[in-house]
């Protein structure tokens, strides 16, 4: 199981804070995105957004990064703090 969190504008667009992917093997971030869209087709336009950032276990990663079961995956828009 991979825990998936969404933040800020993306969280509101999907109307979802957190979900999970029931996988028993490692997958890439891109594969995780495909699985999320398969289970929630209405998320496609929002999750395909190229400007989205991805974090695994609290570190920024790219789409080829490998996510393992029990990892924490998160998608969010570019940051705007400070």
């Amino acid at each position: 199981m991979i825990k998936v969190s969404f933040f800020a504008a993306l969280r509101e667009q999907l109307n979802c804070n957190e979900t999970q992917l029931n996988v028993s093997e490692s997958i890439t971030v891109e594969q995780a995105r495909v699985l999320l869209v398969e289970s929630h087709p209405e998320w496609q336009q929002h999750l395909k957004n190229n400007s989205l950032l991805t974090a695994v276990n609290h570190d920024l990663v790219d789409d080829n990064f490998i996510v393992k079961p029990n990892d924490e995956l998160a998608f969010f828009p570019p940051v705007t703090g400070g």
Binding site: T80, G81, G82
Partner: peptide
């Protein structure tokens, strides 16, 4: 400050 602006996960 410059890196907080582009790396730290805050949203306004």
């Amino acid at each position: 400050m410059d890196f907080l602006k582009v790396k730290a996960p805050f949203w306004k």
